[in-house]
Simulated assay, not measured.
Amino acid sequence: MNATVKVLCYKSKTLASGENPLMIRVSKNGKKTYKSLGISINPIYWDFKENKPKRNCPDREQIENLIIEKLKVFNQTILELNATQKEYTSDSLINKVEKPFELKTVDTIFKEQINILEKTQNLGSLHLYRYTYKSLKAFNGHLNFYFSDIDVIWLKKFENSLKNKNLSDNSIGIIYRTLRTVYNIAIEEKCVNPQLYPFRTFKVSKLHKDTAKRALTKSDIKRIISYQASTEREQLSLDIFIFSYLTGGINFVDIASLTKDNIINNQLVYTRKKTGKLIKLPLHPTAYKLIEKYHNPETPYLFPILSPFHKTEQQKANRVHKIIGKTNKDLKNIGESLKLPITLTTYVARHSFATVLKRSGVKTSVISESLGHSSERVTQYYLDSFENDKLSETINYLL
């Protein structure tokens, strides 16, 4: 049975002003539920037969427009429920219309997500959410507004403000992808109407630009390995780069976390922090020598990046952030000394590993497994961003 909806002047309740409230009455299966329209009227101005304000009613036009809009929303909701064959009662219908969304500000949703990431120690995402939150606040002054206020015009203004700060398209893209993710969370939590979703028109993908080539040739790698470091600090940076190159381009954060337990039967076995994927790689003799070089019985870690002093995840993250900065500074100086064609960073080791294998004729599936990618498709996209030259003869060794 369909519900019927009417607006009534509720005579059973008289306010101190002598007026009666206007109520929505929903009737379904013999049950009637009432909900106030939020306005009241002197009964002398109400036509009880026609259920509408009389011609001489003060503010008649505004009251009639309110009634028309409210009835329209209720009837549209009834049609949607009937079309999807969803069961409903008079109470649930009123709740759906009157309380479709739980209004939370952008500030509230962001802080809730940041709190979750802090509790789960998801430090990578936590950094992105905090950075995006800070960027939004710097642009708007405050985040005490609703997601419904974020439209395409707002997004374009925000984009322009970030470009005026000389942020790259990729950096802006990271901010916008994070904002889009939080907007989707707001939709899931019924904090905003999905019909207002601005990212259908504002395409975040336009903010992605292919990064410059970050892979070296095998001959360049050999030059790096032969480089004579001038300090222990520089030598450590050099060794970290070489180890990463020889062990599937392992990320710096994963290198920092490696312990003796990650060496099993002359294999490097670890779970990649970024994807959670288990990686198993045979240890190149040179990589094994580097492990022996930095062996310290007083610490479980393979390299002197972390120590037993760093107990909490935040302490570890702070330490890794500090050391990777120094390492990349050293590598940049080494690259300049060798006159390499690109800026040398820890990430170049990963790109170079993949490119050398590609040139050697190694199958994409093998490279994907080594890199810890979620699929060959990801690896192919990764490789395509380097070069499109023909594969050279297959070689069996990285060095």
Rank of each mutant, 00 (worst) to 15 (best):
S244L: 05
R272Y: 11
I255V: 14
Y245T: 08
F252A: 01
N262V: 08
G248I: 07
N265I: 08
Y245K: 03
F252M: 00
N251P: 10
I255A: 01
G248A: 12
I250V: 13
Y270W: 13
T271Q: 15
S244A: 12
Q267Y: 02
T271E: 14
N251C: 12
G249A: 06
L246F: 12
I263H: 08
V253I: 15
Y245M: 11
I263S: 13
T271V: 14
S257Q: 15
F243I: 05
S244R: 06
T259F: 04
L246P: 11
N266I: 11
I255T: 04
D261W: 12
L258N: 02
N251V: 06
G249N: 07
I250R: 12
Y245R: 08
I250Y: 05
I264L: 08
F252R: 10
D261F: 14
N262H: 12
D261H: 08
L268S: 13
L246I: 06
K260W: 06
V253R: 02
T247Q: 05
Y245N: 06
F252D: 02
I250S: 03
F243G: 06
V253A: 05
I255N: 01
V269I: 13
K260L: 09
F243H: 14
L258R: 01
D254K: 06
T271P: 05
S257F: 14
L268V: 04
N265E: 15
D254A: 04
T271W: 12
V253Q: 00
N262G: 10
R272V: 10
D261Q: 14
N251Y: 04
V269Q: 11
N266E: 12
V269N: 11
T247C: 05
D261R: 13
V269Y: 01
Y270L: 04
I255F: 00
N266C: 05
T271M: 13
F252Q: 08
L258P: 00
G248H: 10
Q267W: 10
D254G: 02
N266H: 09
I263F: 07
L258T: 06
Y270D: 03
I255Y: 01
F252Y: 11
D254R: 04
T259I: 06
I263M: 07
A256K: 01
N262I: 02
N262W: 03
K260Y: 09
V269W: 02
